[in-house]
Computed example of a mutant assay.
Amino acid sequence: MVSLIVGCSIHIKAHAVDLPVVNLGSTTFYDGAEVPGGKGWSASLFYQNYRGRKITDNKGHEIGLPKSSTNIDSVLMQLIYQGSGGPHDSDWGFSAVLPVVTKNLVDDGLNNTVLDGSEGLADLNIGFYLQFKPIMGDEGPRFVHRLEADVIAPVGDYNKHTAINPGANFWSFNPYWAATFWASSKTTISWRLHYLWNAKNDAPSPETYGDGVDDVQAGQAVHLNFNTLYAFTPKFSAGVNGYWLNQFTDTKVDGDSVSGRREKVFAIGPGAMFAFSRQDVVIANLYFESEARNRPEGNRFVMRWVHKL
């Protein structure tokens, strides 16, 4: 179990990606289950590389620059505490994730006069959750799920004159429901469904939104991680994973809704998991994006190590 924010907040002069960076494909297999190792403290170490081929407009076409490619590396540390004794046959828990953007390469074909980026500390994601006890069948667990209320705190580095920032400069509320269903003793289907609400950015980019704009509030969105997994051996499993994001309300500029800025993306790709033991698990996932609107489109690679402390 992890809850994760990765990457950078992107603002493009004359066109902005308004939503903050959220969990798109960072959590996959057995996502509804208890963290490996059980009760107590666990840690996850993540590496993610995102290579954006283009940044898209409202119709999915590349924005009007000679190039709009990105290459972003992020390293993240997550701490999880799994407690016990929650309500309604559940156990309570806590998680915190702090990312650091270690590489942020941008190419606009214009010597980065339009697109530029910076590295540094990203926004902090913290949450409390209820991990429900599994529903058991004749051959083991059949269904297990979790509810978590997450807050994204704007502690990351942000410069309103920089196009791609580690931080977003506004608070977000990003709760989710994660679940895992055992179709058989070796085959699982998992998903994580998020809702996203964003507060106002009181220092918006003048290059993007114009001089004299006091605040910008990104629209509400839903996003989903999904996967299916087959256990080839007790230690090695592999499957298919994907994600989907859809912004369903307009961004507001100084309180007025602005149409044509809603974001969307879909991705799918292979993944694998290897369990060295009950206390140490490594997961790798690769995603190929398509159907992007008003945001980057590219490929995402995520590797995660989960360790029981």
Rank of each mutant, 00 (worst) to 15 (best):
N23H: 06
L19R: 00
V21M: 10
L65A: 02
I12F: 04
T70V: 14
G64F: 03
T28R: 02
V22Q: 05
V17A: 08
F29Q: 01
N49G: 08
A33C: 15
A43C: 08
D18F: 01
K54F: 07
G52D: 04
D31E: 13
A14G: 11
T27V: 13
A43Y: 11
G60M: 07
P20T: 06
D18L: 07
T56I: 09
K13Y: 05
E62Y: 08
P66L: 07
G52A: 15
G37I: 02
V17H: 02
G60D: 08
P36S: 11
G37H: 00
D57R: 12
I55Q: 02
L45K: 01
I12N: 02
P66S: 11
G64D: 13
S69N: 13
L45W: 08
I55M: 07
L24V: 10
G25K: 00
I12G: 04
T70A: 10
V35S: 03
L45N: 09
H61Y: 11
I63L: 12
E62F: 02
L45R: 05
E62I: 07
Y47C: 06
S42W: 01
Q48N: 15
L19E: 02
A33R: 05
D57W: 02
D18S: 12
T70N: 07
V21P: 03
W41V: 10
H11D: 12
G37T: 10
A14F: 10
V35Q: 04
T70E: 12
K54I: 06
T70I: 12
V17K: 01
K54N: 10
P66I: 08
G64V: 05
V22K: 00
L19G: 00
I55K: 00
K59E: 12
F46K: 00
N58M: 07
K39Q: 11
P36I: 12
A14K: 13
P66G: 10
A43W: 07
N49V: 11
K59F: 10
G64Q: 08
P36L: 09
I63S: 04
Q48F: 00
S9Y: 08
K59P: 06
T56G: 05
A33K: 05
L24H: 04
Q48I: 04
R51V: 15
L24C: 09
S9N: 14
V21I: 06
K59Y: 09
P66N: 10
G60P: 08
